[in-house]
């Protein structure tokens, strides 16, 4: 009799824990899924790959059983999704094509075609950057992560992040001018 009661109690506890975990997971997904998608997209440049990386991240978190132990879920999840995205990008080199859902910020329809062409060239230049420069630059462009958070994510000092972002910009400028000079 007491064993049956223990079983019922254990089942109730397990159900309660599962419900709490699911509620916590839902909360984290609602809060951070967009940011994680942007991080993954900044690395992978492919929407479906980025979505897969985000799903994999939340699955890892769910299976790790550390849902309730996270002190800084944002940094933790950002680090995990970045790792997943880097692993995916190294295993599958994405094409140089621009993704379909990139929004153009061109001011007028007349110059849209020209701007798109120039942005495409810029994107190809960004993609040609070495990863150690490209990742800090792309992550800083998201606007949702401070340089401290990026430094924590990449496990690097904050000064190194700042320097790499600056170096990335300089290299892009050089490449851009070289390409323009070559065309001229």
């Amino acid at each position: 009799m007491s064993r049956a009661a223990d079983l019922r109690q254990a089942q109730q506890n397990a159900q309660t824990t599962a419900d709490l975990s699911q509620a916590k997971l839902t909360e984290l997904v609602q809060q951070h899924s967009r940011l994680l998608y942007r991080i993954a997209f900044a690395i992978l440049r492919n929407p479906s790959d980025a979505e897969d990386a985000v799903q994999e991240t939340f699955l890892q978190l769910h299976n790790s059983g550390r849902l309730h132990q996270l002190e800084d879920p944002k940094s933790y999840l950002a680090r995990i999704v970045w790792r997943n995205a880097v692993r995916r990008s190294s295993s599958r080199r994405q094409s140089q094509d621009l993704p379909e859902n990139l929004e153009s910020t061109s001011p007028s329809p007349e110059t849209s075609a020209m701007h798109q062409q120039m942005e495409s060239k810029m994107h190809s230049l960004i993609d040609q950057l070495p990863e150690k420069l490209r990742h800090p630059l792309a992550l800083s462009a998201l606007g949702d992560l401070s340089q401290v958070e990026i430094a924590k994510m990449l496990n690097l000092p904050e000064g190194t992040i700042r320097r790499r972002i600056h170096t990335a910009r300089q290299q892009l400028r050089k490449q851009w001018e070289k390409r323009k000079g070559g065309k001229a």
Binding site: F41, P47, L102, L137, L172
Partner: peptide, 13 residues
């Protein structure tokens, strides 16, 4: 460059 990088920030799932 800002416009190009903005595409990362504007990416929507």
């Amino acid at each position: 460059l800002e416009n190009s990088l903005q595409t990362y920030a504007n990416a929507e799932p």
